[in-house]
Design a protein around this nucleic acid. Structure first.
Length: 580
RNA sequence: GCACCCAUAGCUCAGCUGGAUAGAGCGUUGCCCUCCGAAGGCAAAGGUCGCACGUUCGAAUCGUGCUGGGUGCACCA
């Protein structure tokens, strides 16, 4: 249930009735009519802008519309008051039973409270992480992994049919470098001195790969030329790297539905087919690009290449799909890969990229726009950098890799739950500070702690209630006499709970999982505030002499954790039942 | 030179696809623990929403042009 949607429907009904009675002209478009929480709670429970957005098309004064709408709405028992305010706002005061109904609805729905169908079962593909299979995942990947995973959870919760996908970049030059690096470790495994030349991957994580190569091939590759072993070693090493990456993702609580391989596109005609499709639309041509404006690169020279006319779909310049030597650019298999996703019947594609891929956005959107005939929208989320801090200074060194901080370093130091939550406390296109000292602190400054603490407090209430012999089973709480919850401080909490389904919709529509984190923090604050008021006003404490009253108050608290658990579930964070 | 992102309180940041007097935390200041729910609570001060035009009943939000910061910019992946 979404109380805001319910009340909006009520407003629309009233407007329609007013039309039928001739008080409003017919043919009005109601899509802009909104029912929202007012910024200031003193204005009421909900506010509608109906009169203002309809004033012009109806050729009436906004306040006049608001007046007749208010009179009409007052006939409904669900509303206590409808007051015209300001330029034509209509402030609505809901009957207490409405808020109590929200609490009950939350208890009955449990972990599914807020689940909705705005996605309408549409198929959406979320591609994220897609780290090169050349080493362990590092900090730079963590945020993208968390955002992608949480977004996928969110969309699924809001009624989309979600596929999580990882695109393995195993077709380019970097996996050849990996193979050469691994080969040196293979030689090392045979007691030879490895030659980690400039440009090879120096990390220790390749030592086990060398050992494994030895176990598989013995010494048969030792003195062979690269041409003999490159392909085999490359496949072998890539597979091992992917094992490691899967384990890294698992440590962060991320699992993929599908791993797609770039290499698998080569030699199958898929790239050719995708390019041909574009060619048939007259979007592929042989040509020469203009030199870049401004400072000219030293070695610039005009080159005849195969180009994609991405400018026809919003890009700034056309982009090469084939190099002058006849091999594909990186863009070509990417086009084929996205064509493949489109062909698989997705209604919507989402790519989660690092911020350094900003220059890639327009061409990728152009390709998808062309290949899907404009049918499939592609949303690309660019993930800004995470800056790590420890002891008041930037944290750069990894004990494991020596050079870069790995995902494992972060998860081991902060824990997967804390890492995930903090990574979702900023919108994706803003840089994020991750301070190991602060995220582990047990204080109000730390949003993870604060939300978990709220959950733990409620669990402690439930425990105490049971000890006191109060029945707080799900059934009893859901059936409690909630008319006891009349105090403004309690209604405030119920009001926040009522916002949850609406927030899910907004966050899902905008592909913005970070909204969930902020909402949970606010909800936790409201619960803590109510708890604190119990210090001064014993009547607001959750445990009362009267069992029925206790049950009503505990039902409210329990509803808070229902929402916290649902929200944390979307974030992929485990709720904590007890603080230690 | 071009493209994309960012700019909101002293600091770190929210801000609901255009709504009312722009919010929260930290910090600052002032109150509140002999006891019953203080790993705290209550209250106050603090803003030309980077700047300038424009769109309209109404702009932090949309458009244009600037300023400042970040990122990326020919066959690299």
């Amino acid at each position: 249930m979404n109380l805001f949607a319910d009340i909006r429907a009520l407003v629309i009904d009233a407007l329609t009735a007013l039309q039928a009675e001739g008080h409003l002209p017919t043919g009005l478009d109601f899509t802009a009519v909104a029912v929202e929480p007012p910024r200031d709670a003193a204005h009421g429970d909900m506010a509608t802008n109906a009169a203002m957005v309809l004033a012009k098309p109806a050729a009436m004064q906004p306040r006049a519309i608001a007046e007749i709408l208010a009179a009409r709405l007052m006939a409904d028992p669900r509303l206590l008051a409808a007051v015209v305010a300001g330029p034509g706002f209509l402030n609505l005061r809901l009957a207490p039973a409405m808020w109590q109904g929200v609490v009950r609805a939350a208890l009955l729905a449990g972990k599914d409270f807020g689940r909705c169908a705005v996605g309408a079962g549409q198929k959406v593909n979320v591609e994220f992480v897609s780290a090169n299979p050349t080493g362990p995942m590092h900090v730079g990947h963590v945020r993208g992994a968390v955002v992608g995973d949480a977004l996928a959870n969110l969309l699924a919760f809001a009624g989309w049919d979600v596929t999580r996908e990882y695109y393995i970049n195993d077709g380019g030059a970097q996996v050849d470098v990996l193979a050469r690096s691994a080969f040196e470790r293979y030689r090392e495994a045979h007691g030879l001195e490895p030659e980690i030349r400039e440009g090879l991957y120096p990390g220790d994580y390749l030592i086990p790969v060398g050992e494994a190569l030895k176990a598989k091939y013995g010494n048969t590759l030792l003195d062979q030329p690269e041409a003999v072993w490159l392909a085999d070693v490359r496949d072998f090493a890539t597979a091992m790297m992917m094992e490691m990456i899967r384990a890294d993702l698992a440590a962060l609580g991320v699992s993929m539905d599908l791993y797609s391989s770039e290499k698998a596109l080569y030699g199958t005609g898929k790239i050719e087919a995708a390019i041909d499709t574009l060619r048939n639309m007259d979007l592929i041509y042989e040509g020469t690009l203009e030199p870049p404006k401004g400072q000219l690169p030293e070695d610039w020279e005009p080159r005849m290449q195969t180009l994609f006319r991405s400018t026809a779909h919003g890009d700034d310049v056309d982009r090469p799909v084939m190099k002058s030597d006849g091999s594909w650019t990186y863009f070509a298999p990417d086009i084929a890969y996205h064509y493949d996703k489109v062909s698989r019947g997705y209604d919507q594609l989402i790519d989660i990229f690092g911020a350094d891929h900003g220059g890639y956005v327009k061409r990728m959107k152009a390709a998808v726009s062309a290949l899907s005939g404009g049918r499939v929208p592609l949303d690309i989320k660019l993930i800004q950098l995470v800056k790590l801090w420890k002891n008041g200074e930037p944290f750069k060194m990894s004990k494991r890799a020596g050079t870069f901080v790995t995902l494992r370093d972060v998860v081991e130091m902060a824990g997967a739950d804390v890492t995930r939550f903090i990574m979702l406390t900023r919108k994706n296109d803003v840089a994020l500070d991750f301070d190991f000292d602060k995220v582990l602190e047990q204080s109000k400054d730390n949003p993870v702690f604060y939300v978990q603490y709220a959950n733990a407090r409620v669990n402690s209430i439930l425990r105490k209630a049971r000890e006191a012999g109060v029945n707080v089973s799900e059934e009893v709480l859901a059936a409690a006499d909630l008319s006891q919850l009349a105090h403004p401080a309690e209604v405030e909490v119920a009001r926040k709970i009522a916002e949850w389904p609406r927030l899910v919709e907004i966050a899902a529509r905008g592909n913005e999982p970070h909204r969930v984190s902020f909402y949970l923090y606010e909800l936790a604050s409201d619960l803590h505030a109510l708890w604190n008021r119990g210090n001064d006003e014993p009547s607001l404490r959750f445990l009362q002499e009267d069992t029925a009253v206790s049950q009503a108050k505990i039902a409210l608290a329990r509803a808070v954790t229902v929402v916290i658990c649902a929200g944390l579930g979307i974030l992929g964070v485990t709720p904590v039942e007890e603080m230690r």
